[in-house]
């Protein structure tokens, strides 16, 4: 196995996983461990937490917690702002859906995603958004009769 010097990120992962495992173990005990003859609801999550905690220690010791050597995903120029903007679009899309309804928001969200991904001009993204929104409404809302959030439109 190739040994990679553990970076800061790798340590963060180890601590995160270990902490999660420990938290799971403690809260499982509170849920009720039961006895082996009458196992309680906390027994299984406790074991999950235990595996997680132990493996995260192994991960630290082995030193391969996370090599980022080849991964440049978020290092591209402008990557981080784009990433954040997309996340914001997704969150707003869902957050506002019960209020403004499915159709209007899908139109806006499709438009926003297309623009964030650097679509040129406005005509093409607008057409894309309209077609996407229309088709998805036709398919899911009308033909499959799924009750999608309609918002204040009714």
């Amino acid at each position: 196995m190739r040994r990679v010097a553990a970076s800061t990120g790798a340590w963060v992962w180890c601590i995160l996983l270990f902490g999660l495992g420990l938290t799971i173990m403690i809260s499982s005990l509170q849920i009720g461990f039961g006895r082996f003859t009458k196992p309680g609801p906390g027994l299984f999550p406790f074991i999950c937490g235990l595996i997680l905690a132990v493996q995260s220690i192994v991960l630290c010791l082995a030193g391969d917690a996370g090599s980022v050597k080849n991964d440049e995903t978020l290092r591209h120029p402008g990557a981080a702002p784009k990433f954040l903007a997309l996340m914001a679009v997704l969150v707003l899309w869902i957050l506002a859906m019960p209020l403004f309804g499915w159709v209007a928001l899908t139109f806006l969200a499709t438009l926003a995603i297309a623009k964030i991904m650097a679509a040129e001009g406005w005509v093409k993204p607008l057409i894309l958004a309209a077609v996407n929104c229309g088709f998805s409404y036709l398919l899911f809302g009308y033909l499959l009769a799924i009750d999608l959030p309609t918002g204040f439109w009714g």
């Binding site: 996983l17 999660l20 495992g21 799971i24 999950c48 493996q55 991960l59």
Partner: peptide, 12 residues
């Protein structure tokens, strides 16, 4: 090791 960490996470 990473695989089993993720599996345990999934189980939880």
């Amino acid at each position: 090791v990473k695989g089993s960490c993720m599996f345990a996470l999934g189980l939880w």
